[in-house]
Amino acid sequence: METRMYQHIVVTTDGTDIDHAAVRHAAGLSRTLNATLTLLHIIPDAHRELSSGTALSVSAEQTEQAWARQGEAALHDGQLDAAGAPLLALQRPALGLDVPHAILREAAALNADLIVMATHGRAGLAHFILGSVAERVVHAADVPVLLIRHSP
């Protein structure tokens, strides 16, 4: 019995321009390997993300609704980037988790055996200050993570 290398690929999108190359790459892998492809957008938990203690002019719920609308647009763009590859587009709330752990939770629930993500490729002070969702996923993942670096 022949086993395929990757049977279910999850590619993340957050609506930024750097995601397009990652989605196209994941779609190409999916077609080549005859693997299931899931395009995933995580809606950050606004209560968690905005818990700086400062007064906000909008509620956490309004913020999450705005992020959900951005996610719908990102999923639409991702479907265009996938250029006909059969895929499932999912948007899921973080539900009390940070985004990296929400990605890992969803990938595990989907039985994904590869996660594809875009990365800015920041280094030095920018990396230290901004951190990296991709890096955190890489360090905590139980499956391989393929990072596609953004090239301007």
Rank of each mutant, 00 (worst) to 15 (best):
G15A: 13
S51K: 05
P152N: 05
R105Y: 05
H8W: 09
A22L: 09
H20L: 04
A126P: 01
T119A: 14
D45F: 13
A60E: 13
V10I: 14
A126E: 04
S151W: 03
I148Q: 05
V138C: 14
L147Y: 03
G15Y: 13
A123N: 03
T32H: 06
I103D: 02
H120G: 04
L95K: 09
E135I: 00
N111Q: 13
L40R: 07
A21Y: 03
D45K: 01
R69E: 15
L125P: 06
L125C: 03
D81Y: 07
A112C: 12
I18T: 02
E61L: 15
A89R: 08
L37V: 13
T13G: 00
A26V: 00
I18Q: 07
G84L: 04
L97A: 06
A74T: 01
L80R: 14
V138K: 01
H47M: 04
G124F: 15
G131P: 05
E2P: 11
T119V: 12
T54I: 09
A112F: 15
I148K: 08
Q62G: 04
D14S: 10
H8N: 10
A108E: 09
T38L: 10
V10E: 08
A107P: 08
P44R: 02
S132H: 01
I43L: 03
E64H: 06
L75N: 10
S57C: 02
P100G: 05
T12F: 03
L87S: 13
H41S: 05
D142M: 05
D113Y: 15
D81M: 01
P93K: 01
L104V: 06
A141P: 12
S59L: 14
Q79K: 15
V58M: 10
A126S: 10
G71H: 08
A83Y: 06
T63F: 11
T63N: 15
A73T: 06
Q70I: 14
I42P: 09
L75G: 03
W67N: 11
A94Q: 09
E61M: 12
A109L: 15
I148V: 15
P152R: 08
A73K: 07
E61C: 13
